[in-house]
Design a protein around this nucleic acid. Sequence first.
DNA 1: GTGGTCTAGACCACC
DNA 2: GTGGTCTAGACCACA
Lengths: 121, 121, 121, 121
Amino acid sequence: MRFKENKAIYLQIADLICNNILQGRLSEDERIPSVRECAATVEVNANTCARAYDWLQGQDIIFTKRGLGYFVCNGAKNVIRNIKKQEFFNEILPEVANQMLSLNITMEDLNNEIIKHQMKK
Amino acid sequence: MRFKENKAIYLQIADLICNNILQGRLSEDERIPSVRECAATVEVNANTCARAYDWLQGQDIIFTKRGLGYFVCNGAKNVIRNIKKQEFFNEILPEVANQMLSLNITMEDLNNEIIKHQMKK
Amino acid sequence: MRFKENKAIYLQIADLICNNILQGRLSEDERIPSVRECAATVEVNANTCARAYDWLQGQDIIFTKRGLGYFVCNGAKNVIRNIKKQEFFNEILPEVANQMLSLNITMEDLNNEIIKHQMKK
Amino acid sequence: MRFKENKAIYLQIADLICNNILQGRLSEDERIPSVRECAATVEVNANTCARAYDWLQGQDIIFTKRGLGYFVCNGAKNVIRNIKKQEFFNEILPEVANQMLSLNITMEDLNNEIIKHQMKK
DNA sequence: GTGGTCTAGACCACC
DNA sequence: GTGGTCTAGACCACA
């Protein structure tokens, strides 16, 4: 798998898991792939996946059962949405607003561009 | 001066200079503060400012006259705008589009939020 | 290792790496010695090597994989050759031509001298 | 006047004087322009010219008569030729020979290029 | 382990 | 005064 350069790989892996949860490919209480499976499928060092899982655990998105593996927490979806919302409104949006001003980008430009991106999906 | 935690200080200093150029507080061919002056005003080590200036020079935004100091390049504004535009359209926007989808944020929500931010300025 | 006095050490280290690439001792996509290894072998401060590597990265000669090290870019050889050619034809050659005129050195003298130097290698 | 970036300005000014001497535009024992005149014509700070003159004096190319100015030394031409020869054979030529090898530039290429440069003059 | 950043302080060449 | 380089040593994030 290809990762972005400007974000830590372990965070991108965590994000991957989050999206799988949000979109229902992993449901609450379900077991997620082991660290080694994960490492194999995304082709990174197992330590990196372990770190991603560790981060997810710290956010109360997954939890561990000794000897069994990692499982999705109850309410994980909400937690994820809150984290993403906070990130979106507190970090991304202000940046967008700033850059639009300094680059003279209008709301129309922005909307058109976003629609273009969303169409691709 | 207070710097963000998640971005290298020298890049934030570079950004500071860029904004001063974009907004006309520094004009083309004008001399910018010396490395040491800069270091004193933003309260960092001179090496850190030197690194910022070095980065700006590599981007053809400023140039150096030996023994005299750094000066804004002709065309610096354009260079800066291009760098910022590239960053905006290639990195920030796709992220925004993604998050909007996964958080069910509508274009209207986005527009309202952005306007709110821009009003503050 | 001994360095020339009239050229920054970090540039001489960069040149070292370039020659290793040109002469096939480092091939494309291969990992180059870590900053600290490099520093130990050429006996300079690690920061100086880091700066050399940073410069090489800016020239698209090497790139970094986080946590893993620096690797030779695809096409690095060409990039290096272009840089060296530009330097040769735009800076060194005009100087040679000038000095030959003012010192009354003939083409024959020049050729003989160069052959002498090349034989030593 | 435009100066090269890669060589100290005061040395380029010194070189200018040397060439004027070599080519007979300044003869031995003749007075050369004052530091201030020189500074005005090449458009640099007077200190820079002073430094050039100082260097020339250290090389026994010019000497000073108090209150009168700087004058070309007897034998200046020879001194200059020797300096230039030394520089040419010990510093420039080895570099040329090296680069030719690593860039696969033949003696023919070199000769053609040099002739091209010399024709321009 | 890796690279990346930052500080503090030094020395140099240059203008 | 200016920028440029180098050292020594520290701390951090990342794999």
